[in-house]
Design a protein around this nucleic acid. Structure first.
Lengths: 267, 267
DNA sequence: TAACTTTGTTTCATTATTTGAAACTTAGTT
DNA sequence: AACTAAGTTTCAAATAATGAAACAAAGTTA
């Protein structure tokens, strides 16, 4: 299943890392090999290298590999430096308290939705379980509002990569339906998920835009058809809009051009 | 500051990734170069490759690099597959409710403590902020109980890597003091942090051991000298021990030898 | 016990990639 | 216009990756 990796040895090694992560459970060398574009010794050395680098963890008893702890360390830095999450946190807390429903914060990653934070109304803990999770862009509220507001070239590219798998009878069936929906979202300024991903699950989603109009991420409030309906969710629009604005404001001030803090040393 | 990387090109690229993560803020190419063992074009290509692989994110406006979103995706898999966190979660919830204080779940990573989950008694949200964080082993409760119960070769190696920076007047000053403390912890079965890392902060820590005695991780309950003392914390010992036992039990059953689930395909 | 099978590991000549001094480009000074 | 600093490209030499084949170890079957 040779992908068009490029990027030399490093790219290939990372492809192996993705493969292990995708298995979702400890995996044996032979299982990787059966699905690998690489010949046996090549794959073997990649796995050895990644393990020695703590990017993979090896269980000698079961002879299995899993994603390694170094990834958790590195991701902590990524989450803290490269996402909206740290500065959005207090605003998410407030939003969650205000609406009393599950709240998501997401960013666009490649052509997918990456959830970077979450508040679960009732039991407010379940978090890392969601942060880092990815979802489809074409059938989630946050996905659609982000596609609607991102650079058109990026959007078209992303649209071309959607699977348009029909999760429910309300799932948008193809690229044209999605494009029409995106136009409507642009007109309104926000969007809905009308049971397009899971039956009974609806949400209202709001883009987070910088003052120059650049897409930063998206917020959503999720509920069920048993508890409310789209009109009910629409009543959250003002607080959602305000929260998005605050996050965008804080985001503008955060990337502190603080380049005097650490002076270049030798050279 | 050339480390003994080894592992060829992949190892070097990951070293660069660590360097970017360590900066803790968006960083320019020249800043990396000033602190890099690699010559300019070599570092340049690593950064290019990592960026193209989404392991780094590039901000063209500011010409800065940060850890990339792919790390967040990968870490989600790592956290879910390679840590105690998923199966420990309900037990942590229960423990947190029982003791009403901040609770940590940690694992040993290399010679450091890696916090993989947390319950904050009062405001129970603040999580990913802690998951992925690392801490010193020689002056934290979880660090010491883990060093006390891990394979002696690993422990000695880890002891050799501790900095023994004197955070407070109670910080253990050197390897010998630490070894004595570890012996005492082994005798008791659990340990304390006696304001060794931060003044006023104390904790009781309990190792999580498999039925064969292998170290899996550690739990701790943290409080302040204002609210309680070591004797007060010691009253949590039974519930801590029981929680550790339950997590170990679930851990034994989880690594489902489920190798019929996905059959190797071609080959 | 011996033959077979499966899985994991090592070898080594060939091939392809990485390497880095130097040169070049671009943008921002002075 | 001359200078400077940061980023980018070039290309021959040095190095590392490659993978067919052989090997070792563990488990299975006869």
């Amino acid at each position: 299943m040779g992908r068009v990796t490029g990027d030399g040895t490093v790219g290939k090694a990372l492809e192996v890392l993705d493969q292990v992560a995708a298995f979702g459970r400890p995996v044996r060398f032979a299982e990787l090999l059966a699905d690998s574009p690489f010949p046996k010794p090549t794959l073997y050395r990649f796995v050895q290298t990644l393990t020695s680098q703590q990017m993979l963890a090896y269980d000698p008893e079961r002879q299995t590999y899993s994603p390694g702890l170094r990834l958790v360390r590195l991701a902590h830095a990524a989450w803290d430096q490269s996402t909206l999450a740290p500065m959005a946190r207090p605003h998410l807390d407030a939003l969650s308290a205000a609406v009393g429903e599950t709240v998501h914060l997401a960013q666009l990653d490649h052509a997918q939705v990456l959830y970077i934070d979450k508040r679960n109304a009732n039991k407010p803990v379940e978090m890392y379980s969601q942060a880092g999770k990815i979802g489809p862009a074409y059938c989630t509220g946050v996905g659609k509002v982000m596609l609607a507001h991102v650079d058109p070239v990026v959007a078209e590219n992303a649209i071309g990569q959607q699977s348009f798998h029909r999760f429910t009878e309300h799932t948008l069936p193809d690229a044209d339906a999605l494009r029409a929906e995106l136009a409507e979202i642009r007109a309104n300024g926000y969007g809905f998920d009308r049971e397009e991903h899971e039956p009974g699950i609806i949400c209202i989603a709001m883009p987070i835009l910088s003052d120059t109009g650049r897409l930063l991420g998206a917020l959503s409030v999720t509920s069920t058809t048993g508890r409310t309906n789209l009109a009910g969710l629409e009543s959250f629009e003002p607080v959602l809009r305000e929260t998005a604005r605050k996050i965008a404001r804080d985001a503008a001030n955060w990337n502190f051009p603080d380049y005097n803090a650490k002076e270049a040393t030798r050279m």
